[in-house]
Amino acid sequence: MIRILLRYIILFVLTLLVLAGLSFSLAYLFPGDVLANLTGITAQNEMQRAALAQQFHLDSGYIVQFYHYLKNLLTGNWGYSFISGMPLSEEVRLALPATIELATYAMLLAIVIGIPVGCYAGLRSYTAADYTINSASMIGYSFPVFWLALLFILMFSLEWNIAPLSGRISLLFEVPPKTGFILIDILFADNINRLLAFRDALHHLMLPTLAISVISIASMVRITRRSVIEVKNKPFVAAARTRGLSQGQIFYRHILRNALLPILPLMAIQITTLITNAMIVETLFSWPGIGNWLIQAIYQRDYPALRIGMLAVAFMVVTLTILIDLFNRVIDPSREKYERVAV
C-alpha cells in the first residue's frame, strides 16, 4: 500500500513539475517583456526593473530561473494581473471555488440520476425501456453544451422567466467570500435573510448546473448500463442464481458492486470534460468562475493571468484524476493482485 501511495505521489509531483515548466516557458513564449509576463508588474523605472530582475534571477540560466519560479509559486507569490493589478493568488482563490462548486453539483446530479437509471436500463437490457433510456441518453450526450446553455437561457429566462439570466446571486445580498462556495458562504454571512439568499442562489445555480449535467448524466447512464450488462453475464452471477438467491440479493450483493468498480476510473476521465463544459457554461451565464476569468484574460491579453490560470486548472484536474484513481485502487480488492508473486 505504501509503495502504491509513493508511486502515485511521485507521479503527481512529476506531472506538476512538467506543468510548472510549461507555465514558466509561457512567460518567454508570450509576446512582450519576459519580466512583465512573469511578474505582472510593468516596471516604471530602471531601479524597480533591476530589483524585480534580481528577485526573479533573470540574469542567471533558465534552470536557476525555473527553480526560483517554483519557489515563488510555492510561497504564493504568483504575480499580479495586468488589468486589475490584484495579486493573482487572490483572484484565483475567488474564481476557482465557483467553478468547483458548479462542477461538483453537476457531478452529484450525474451520480444521483445517472447511476440508478443506468442500472435500471442494464437490468432491463434490450427491452423497450432500455432502448428508450439509451436513445434519450444518446440525444443528451450529443447536445453541444454552449448551444444547450443558450437554449436554456432562451427558454427559462427569456420566455418563461423562471430563472435569472446570469450571475451567482442577486446583488441585493452581500455575501462576503469566505470559502468561495456560495451556498456555504451564505450560511456564514451576517445581516442578510439567509433563507431568501439561499433560495436566490439556488435559482441562479439551476440553469448552469442543468446545462452541464445533461451531458454528464447521459454519459453516466451509458457507462453504468454497459457495466451492468457486462457483469450480469458473468459466470458468478449465474452461479449465484443457481444457489437460489433472489433477484434483489443478486443485484445488491453481486452485480452492483462489481458494476460500479470499473465506473470510477471512467469517472476520472469524465472530470476533464466536466470542467471544460463548466468553463464554457460560465461564460454564457457570467458565472464568476475560473473559465469566465480566463476568457476575460484572453480578451484583455492578461498574460500573467493566463499563465497562472492554466496552471491552476491543470492542477485541479490532475489532483482529482489521481485521487479518484488512488481511491479506486484502495477499494477494489482485485487490483492488489499485481503485488503478489506468481508461483
Partner: peptide, 23 residues
Amino acid sequence: REIMRRDIAVVFQNPISALDPSA
C-alpha cells in the same frame, strides 16, 4: 428458485470465475 435454494446444489467447473471477485 426455492428448489434450487434448498434441494439442488451445483458445483461449477471453474471455481474462480464462479465466485464474486469483490466479496
